[in-house]
């Protein structure tokens, strides 16, 4: 019977990991940034004040963590007041949607399987677990629901864009452009680009076809989504970091720590 290199490893003639480069650096950075984001996001949705820079500072900026505001606790943002009975922070209501979308995202799966679960931590570096069933069993079989998270997240970039447009109103019918507005617009576009690059969305919009020639419109949409999909990792990171930065900026403006400069 042939003896594989796994057997050689067991006999100690071949180390399990032969890589000599800094293979640990990328998973380490991913671990720190993702963990930092989770900690910050948890703090911000459980801290329901200063998330809206309102008339008291001459602005209409609502934190993306609290957008859309569907309770009566948003103190002046775009309020639809759909669940006025909600007794807790409005941010908690909105969090499940982006969490579901990002947690089941094909890119983030790669990121956290490598950096948190070490399965594997890097290419050709041994898996940290003795057995492996991948996404074939509960709970990871639920990753197959990513497309439903995609459906749910579609309104969010549009709502964020609407909030950014609302942020151009400087009170009493006067319109202008502050640095905060630019940040809100960039945030909406980054989340939009990340959403447009979704692998599940790319499949639903045209990738499921066997003959592109039979569906020219779907083929066109697939081609456009493929452009965003090529940079899905980049959009995933920039939109992740920027949403936290947008929240920080609005909190600083709302609490009076900094003044939002008006560009015109």
């Amino acid at each position: 019977m042939a003896v594989g290199t796994l057997e050689a490893e067991r006999r100690g003639t071949r180390p399990a990991n032969l890589r000599v480069d800094w293979w640990w650096l990328q998973p380490a950075i991913t671990f720190v940034v993702l963990l930092g984001f989770v900690v910050y996001s948890t703090w911000t949705v459980f801290t329901p004040h200063d998330f809206y820079a309102g008339p008291s500072v001459g602005r209409h900026y609502l934190s993306p963590y609290y957008s859309p505001c569907i309770t009566n606790r948003c103190k002046g943002g775009t309020t639809w007041n759909l669940v006025s009975w909600w007794p807790f922070s409005a941010g908690i209501l909105m969090m499940p949607f982006p969490i579901l979308f990002r947690a089941t995202c094909y890119y983030y799966r790669k990121a956290y399987y490598r950096s948190f679960w070490l399965s594997p931590p890097a290419c050709a570096v041994p898996d940290a677990h003795g057995s492996y069933t991948g996404e074939s069993r509960f709970p990871l079989i639920l990753q197959n629901l990513h497309r439903f998270a995609f459906y749910l997240i579609i309104p969010f970039p549009i709502i964020l864009l609407w909030e950014a447009i609302k942020g151009l109103e400087f009170g009493s019918g006067h319109w202008g452009l502050g640095l905060g507005s630019i940040i809100l617009f960039v945030n909406a576009f980054l989340l939009g680009f990340y959403t447009l690059g979704c692998h599940a969305g790319r499949h639903i919009c045209g990738g499921h076809l066997n003959a592109f020639s039979k569906g020219p419109v779907r083929y066109w949409v697939w081609k456009q989504m493929t452009r965003f999909n090529l940079h899905h990792m980049g959009w995933a990171w920039t939109s992740l970091v920027f949403v936290a930065w947008t929240d920080i900026y609005i909190r600083l403006v709302a609490s009076g720590v900094i003044h939002d400069p008006r560009l015109f």
Binding site: K110, S119, C123, G134, E135, L140, H199, H203, G207, H208
Partner: peptide
């Protein structure tokens, strides 16, 4: 279902085929 999208196959492919993005994920979908 065993594939967990860690993209190592794509990284090592000498022909630069987008194995994960264009084959494995579409198959999962």
């Amino acid at each position: 279902p065993y594939c967990n999208i860690t993209k190592c196959c794509t990284e090592v492919c000498p022909e630069h085929i987008h194995i994960t993005d264009n084959a494995l994920i579409p198959l999962k979908e």
